[in-house]
Each structure stands twice: as C-alpha cells, then as structure tokens.
Design a binder for these strands. Structure first.
Lengths: 217, 217
DNA sequence: CCGCCCCACAAACTAATGTTCGGCACCAAT
DNA sequence: ATTGGTGCCGAACATTAGTTTGTGGGGCGG
C-alpha cells in the first residue's frame, strides 16, 4: 500500500465529510453529496481529489458503481461501517469504587480495553462505556463475575432498571437495581443471598443504565 | 410500526439477498442487483415486491437516492450498515424440535427475524445463526427464557461446552452442556431442578456451539 | 514576462439506477 | 362467462451519479 502523505486541507475536509456522512446515513456519499457538503463548486474537484486520495491509500472507489466509496484504515483494510467500539473504563462491584468516577484522574490511567458491541446499540443510545463486573452481586440478574456491562450514561432511572449508582457520601459506585421509595432509594442486588441497601435519595446519583451484558464463551 | 405479515417466497428470497449483499459489499444492492441475484426477469418485479415489503415494515427505501434500501429490525429501526446480521432460524428448548433442523423444509417457514451481533464474532467464527430460547432449562448458565443464543455451526464439542444437540432417533434438538462419557453422552441442563439426559454417543449429533447470548434490557 | 504545474471551475456527457406503464397469466368469487 | 386481485413480465422513461473536457487563476523558476 502506498505511503501515507499529509493531506491537503481540502482533502482532509472531504475525508471528514465522508466519515460523517457514513455515520449519519449508513451509505457512502455521492460525489455531489461531497460537493455540497464541502461547499465545492464542481463535481470534478471532488473527483480530482478523490482520485488523489485513492492513489495515496486513504480510500477505495469502486468504479461503475454508484456510491462506491469505501474508507480504508491505516492498514489498508476497509473500515467496518458500523464498528461500534466501547471502552472499558474500569470495574465495578458492590462496595468498590470505580476508578473512572473517583476523584482522582478521570481519564488518566484508563486501561486500554475495548470491546465491540452490537452496532444498533450505539445507534440507539449514543455514547456508551463499559465496566467489568467483579463479584456475583447481580447473579440473579444473570450477570456473573467477569462479565462486562455496557452502560448508557444517564441521570435518571425508572424503577427496576439496572443502574450504576454513585453514593456521594461514601464515594462509591455500585451496580444495582434501582427503586425509588419516597425520599429514599432502595438499591437491590439481584442475588438472593444479599440484602438491599437503603440510602437517602439525595445521596444517590445515577450514573448510567445497563443496556447490554457481554460474556465470554 | 406496521403489522408483521408472512412473506411470500419471492419476498423472503429478496430479503435474504439484500442481507447477504449487505454483508458482502457493505452497501445496499440496487434494484438490478436484486434482479440478477434472485433471477428475476424484470426490475419492475423487484420494485413491486420492495414496495410491498416497505409497506409491511420490513425495509425502508429512500427515494431519490441510489442504493437507498435499508433493512429494518423488528422494532422498525434501521439495521446498521455493514453490521453483522444473524438470522434467528427458530427456537429451541429441552425436548422441542427446531423447525430449521427438522426433516421438512429447511428454509420454508423461515421467520423474519434478524439480530445484530458484535462484528468481531462474525469475524472470528464465520457464519453464524441464532436461536430463540424457550424455557428456563439453562437458567443456571445465565440463559433465560426469551434470550437469543448465537450459534456457530460445528460437529464437535469439548466437554462442558454449551451445544445444540440433535437426537437422531427422537428427531429433537436441545440446548445443553455437552459431556462425553465413554460411549455415552451426558446432556446436562444448567438448571438445578432438571436432570441430565444420557444418550448413546451415536445417537447424538452436535449441531453447533453457543458463542454468545443476547438479552433485551 | 513566459511557460508550467497544481488546483479549481463549469458544463456536458455517459453510465447507473429508480420508476412507470401496458399487458399477460392465474385464481377465486360472482 | 365476467370481474377483480395478485404476481409477473418487458420495455420505455426519468432521475441520479460518475466521468470527461476545456478553461482560468496563481505561484514559481527561468
């Protein structure tokens, strides 16, 4: 594959636009889409630059096919279109703090751990992150030690939903089922051998909601 | 969302082709692609059926746009492009046959049900299919009624793996943990209230292995 | 200043692709 | 037999989208 070269501003602009268009529409843009999107006055300018970028290995064009543009990654392979990667930002268990939420560096020592999730999840929920589950406090909800839960950040929760709850006073995060009961909140582990936790409503902050559980086989 | 209706054979054929084309090419097929792929003699037939399928909520067509076909999932949301789609070919439970494996038509009464899986799964395992789980026979393995298991077709299994086992004599398929014990095979439900099944090794055919469990939240 | 190259422009052209139309065969209800 | 609906066919038609062509401006070395 050809060596990477620095892109001209216009080419960078086109590249960005293609990526954005792909995200928004699911199919590649036409030359005229790019033209409009980048405020270029002629399709031939787009064609010209696409040709250069193809030569330099940034993308591939299937000729004779409408919307035949594919982006390539740094290895020259086509970019999986809906590739939804989610970062595992830490681990969570009853009573243990989550590093990412603790007062020290939020993003600093983040582990480099990424899981792929079903593309439709990201489409439906937007930004997501993941936590590795320690312990068996949610075993009755079919979440085991070592599983990875995918979390959608949100401040609110309906009763019965599985949430990441942040206890302000204790500075702890925990994975529980959420039940609002007056000015109290019951955090219910899904494990018949464990008791629920009752806390004042203003001491609880919902950090996110579980949207998916991943398990290795 | 529009009500679900049974698809005509031709429409099922077209739907399958679109999915396959999407997998292979990353972009939706044109009317003429479908025409060729399904051996239809006229584009108008394709258009005719696409129109019906759009009316019935199986897909969406963006008019005025080339390759504007999008598949919709059962909730009416667009399926991410280039995503790994797996077809749910039937349901499975202890003691009940799986339609797709029974002696009658393998592909005939195929339901319109497709789930998305993590892209890396398909990359790692190749072709996959999915089954909807009925009953709680695998509850201790954290597989609940209504979950969907993703299966990798294979003839062999190691002890302890969760497999789809086909009992030749009974003509039944069942989801169990597999243990080879001499010339017998123990099929162990992961439910403490249920007993294992012992069958002769030559009466058991391993159809596939569970690689993923999907659950709605 | 000249010629040259890179880049951009607009318009025209061709190919690809979606859409429509009239007609035919089959089947079921009238 | 007649009527109406479904499914299919082939071809023409309309629109979208990729490609080509001729042109012009601006920087740069001669």
């Amino acid at each position: 594959m050809p060596p990477k070269k620095n892109l001209r501003p216009r080419q960078q602009q086109i590249l960005d636009f293609i990526g954005q268009f792909l995200d928004e529409n699911g199919i590649p843009p036409t030359v005229r889409d790019i033209q409009r999107g980048c405020s270029i006055s002629s399709t031939s300018v787009v064609d010209y630059n696409l040709r250069l970028m193809e030569r330099d290995g940034y993308l591939k064009r299937r000729s004779e096919v409408a919307r035949g543009i594919e982006l390539l990654d740094e290895t020259g392979l086509p970019v999986a279109n809906g590739a939804a990667r989610v970062q595992i930002v830490g681990s969570i268990a009853a009573g243990e703090p989550i590093p990412a939420f603790s007062s020290e560096g939020v993003d600093s020592a983040a582990e480099f751990d990424i899981v792929e999730v079903r593309p439709d999840l990201k489409k439906r929920h937007g930004t997501l992150y993941a936590l590795s589950v320690k312990g068996t406090s949610m075993i009755d909800a079919l979440i085991d030690d070592g599983d990875v839960v995918v979390i959608k950040p949100t401040n609110t929760a309906r009763n019965g939903e599985m949430v990441v709850a942040w206890l302000k006073a204790e500075e702890e995060a925990t994975l529980k089922k959420f039940f609002r009961e007056g000015d109290q909140v019951r955090l219910q582990p899904a494990n018949s051998t464990m008791d629920p936790i009752y806390v004042a409503a203003d001491n609880v902050e919902v950090k996110g909601r579980v949207v998916e559980v991943l398990r290795q086989f």
